[in-house]
Design a protein around this nucleic acid. Structure first.
Lengths: 111, 111
DNA sequence: CTTATTGCTACAGTTAGTGTAGCGCAAGAG
DNA sequence: CTCTTGCGCTACACTAACTGTAGCAATAAG
């Protein structure tokens, strides 16, 4: 089933962009994959290894979805982020900053 | 099973804050719940309704998790965000802005 | 008492994700 | 040419995550 802003997703019929994004990022490994690709393209097997050996079945379906959403693409160096994917990656980097402060003040856990 | 920065989560043994966050937000309805609480506390049944009638079973387990993470709390008005939860909500609002631009330039889909 | 509304639990059924094995293909070595 | 090596990916059986409906115990009002 296709997936893009404007079309309904799990748990929301409106196709409102943020709902599409919540649906996509709310699936296991989605954010992690974008995160691991932040420093440049990786091969299927490399990416899989970085994601704690996620099952290839899932990695493949997830990559198909992210590709459909225009966030990743396949280059000659392997799987990489598109411009939009990289942009979203920056948003995730902000989340990283946030998470570190959060952990620090709430649990004294180090990044 | 407890959940907090510093302790291992699904797919990462390090307990690195961003991984804890990815694990938590990567579960279905997590982001949506934080999103729906952004304008103030809601009762269990109200919150459930706003989340497209998510099953009460899941809503309850999710609320327990979010509470454990210090993102939500139960007030006299019902379920609400903590300061950290509200802060994270602001990050999600940034994602909303991002998603709207994304949808607009990629698919001409309106927010 | 009855009635209504609340937060929440029980439980069976469906969907999503896991883990291992290995296929088909392309490139390099002998 | 054959043999190996490493690649992206698929098959498939298993487990975990989520769904949907019914309804319980508690509280409050009539």
């Amino acid at each position: 089933m296709a997936k893009q802003p404007g079309l309904p997703v799990r748990g929301s019929t409106t196709g409102r962009p943020i709902m599409v994004l919540f649906d996509a990022l709310g699936q296991k490994w989605s954010m992690r994959i974008l995160w691991e690709l932040r420093d440049g393209p990786l091969t299927f097997r490399e990416l899989r290894e970085r994601c704690d050996d996620v099952s290839p079945t899932l990695l493949n379906t997830r990559m198909k979805m992210l590709k459909e959403l225009g966030l990743t693409e396949t280059t000659e160096q392997g799987y990489g982020l598109t411009e939009w994917g990289a942009d979203l990656g920056k948003q995730l980097a902000r989340l990283d900053d946030w998470a570190n402060k959060w952990a620090l003040t709430m649990y004294d856990a180090q990044p």
